[in-house]
Design a binder for these strands. Structure first.
Lengths: 341, 341
DNA sequence: GTTAGCACTCCATTTCGATGAGTGCTAACG
DNA sequence: CGTTAGCACTCATCGAAATGGAGTGCTAAC
């Protein structure tokens, strides 16, 4: 348990370090105004905080910097949520006022705004269709042997893919089945589509359509095919403004990682809802062991749909970012419900 | 006009410099084997080449590096197209063998492969719908006041957007019009849609549908709305491996630029078809004045559809990249025709 | 418990000279 | 006359040594 004074000092050090990116000395803390003790006293406390593992010393004659544990304590107990500034709020309002055609545009654009406002990197996971329901399913023939399958969800989300139609299958038969599927599957959540298909539809169809099995399998694959949510990335180059990544090799390993969509999705795997902060080595990936990742989920009708996140150096403006993500995730939810008023 | 010997020397210098990224001295050229003159002779020629503006000297006691003009001469007269290596060819074959659902996936994936094979940054402009024709148009209602419009092109390309339906317009009326549009517009190239809409359809409809004007305007907007081609970017972090960008500020200005889709599209504006090489300051954007951009267009049925490009330092392996882009752009065309055999 | 004072540590920056790669010029060579 | 060997000169780079200064830990006094 820390004393009040220790907490003040820890807070002051982290604040300073977040601003300056340089080890903080006892003298500068003493001069800040909010901690009115002499440098010597502060030095003593700092030594204690270091013993507790909350601070570190790059070398004997330097000031202190926060350790991972120190940041963790700061985030859990000390950080003050600044709220969203006037300017940012205005920016967000104009952002949400913009008319956008695609669901995905909203999310993608949100990523851009987020990275611009924070000067960090933003990573946004697009909505998953998993929990939504099927609204419409359709095949549009393109040539003799190929067609475009279009799948619309109740959220207005559209998926489409090109499929190849095997030889010996008549378009008519396909259409019969598609019509049937539409009747039976509309309103069914995607995660149930597969079972409904097998239990209710398969037998009924088999009577009056040739090649039924084959067609059904094809369509089933088409509808249920794993559709990984899209990942939107913005402001990756902001990483380069951080002094901790002025070393090109470090920067490269992070930016390289950011290009691999697969890895990014891994980062977002544990998804308990609400705001989550992962500091330094708390992150699974080694490439971002010097970074912190703050994530928030956005939801629609109580269902968590996707995640928005900010990646920055461990020396991140936690207060600002947490407030912002909180604000934005709620606003996105709001916007979605308005969208389908 | 350069003498044969000068061309050999210029070629040798550029080759060496592309490999090493360091100023090339007369001695190392002399030792390469393909130029059998003494260092002193080579020095004389180098001085001449410098006077011609083809070479530069970072400082008096350093070797020479190619100037923009030097690279230009190299690309126009000297470069040997290596062809595509076995390994790369194999990689491309497996790439094209993969089954992909979306048209866009092919293009996006091509960008990835391209950047991996070259270790440069690849930029790919997705297919434009401009020159394709309309195959199918449809509205799917999502809620009382919103619907998803789906537009399918003859290439299998799908566009969709969410539209808001104004109060006082019945879904029925909408559907009538949509059906009509499908009849009349199928097979019409997108760039003609607007005029056909006005000349052939407007008057005919106005007779038997209420609110005709309003609906038509809405749909027209929906169909013809500027759809900027998507930009796919891959391997941006490869820039950081280049010694010329070890300075973080330079790297930042380039990577920052790469994040702005708008700017990237600018880069691709002049689009004469075939392979195009822009070296250093020949590029419009200042941010890439130290880079070269090589682009190729890919086409379908004679129509140029989009562009694939490689961005790297001016010290780029021109021969390799040009061969590769040439190969790939043709393969994409091939693939597209096979897709709709 | 707090603070002033002081010796000490160690990084960062500068300075300086040595090193060496590379040049331009001149003179000799075939 | 083209080519080449030789040589003095330039200048970036590297390492060692010197300097400065920020910050600490400890002790003793308040």
């Amino acid at each position: 348990m820390l004393s009040e004074r220790q907490r003040m000092i820890l807070n002051a050090i982290i604040d300073d370090y977040i601003r300056s990116a340089e080890p903080v000395g006892s003298r500068s803390i003493s001069k800040r105004g909010d901690v009115t003790f002499s440098p010597a006293t502060i030095r003593n406390e700092m030594a204690d905080l270091e013993e507790l593992g909350l601070l570190e010393q790059p070398h004997t004659s330097a000031g202190r910097i926060p350790s991972i544990k120190g940041y963790r304590y700061y985030v859990d107990h000390l950080v003050t949520l600044d709220g969203v500034g006037d300017q940012d709020a205005r920016k967000l309002r104009t952002f949400f006022a913009e008319k956008m055609n695609h669901w995905e545009d909203v999310i993608g654009h949100a990523a851009t705004v987020l990275s611009q406002m924070t000067n960090y990197t933003s990573i946004v996971l697009g909505p998953e269709m998993f929990s939504t329901t099927l609204k419409h399913f359709q095949l549009i023939p393109i040539s003799d042997s190929s067609a475009v399958a279009i799948i619309v969800a109740n959220t207005g989300h559209v998926e489409h893919r090109t499929i190849t139609i095997p030889d010996g299958i008549a378009m008519e038969d396909m259409n019969k089945i598609v019509n049937m599927l539409n009747e039976k599957l509309t309103g069914v959540p995607f995660y149930k589509v597969k079972s409904v298909l097998h239990s209710e539809i398969a037998k009924e169809l088999s009577r009056y359509v040739e090649h039924c099995e084959e067609i059904l399998t094809l369509l089933e694959q088409t509808i249920t095919e794993e559709q990984e949510p899209k990942v939107y990335l913005s402001g990756a180059s902001n990483m380069l403004t951080q002094p901790e990544f002025k070393d090109v090799d470090k920067a490269k390993s992070i930016l390289g990682m950011l290009e691999e969509t697969q890895l990014l999705m891994q980062l977002f795997q544990s998804n308990p809802g609400g705001i989550q902060v992962k500091i330094g080595t708390e992150n699974a990936l080694e490439a971002i062991n010097q970074c912190s990742l703050i994530t928030a989920t956005y939801s629609y009708e109580g269902q968590s749909l996707g995640t928005i996140g900010i990646l920055g150096p461990t020396r991140m403006e936690y207060g600002k970012v947490i407030s912002l993500l909180n604000y934005l995730s709620k606003d996105i939810a709001l916007m979605m419900s308005r969208w389908y008023k």
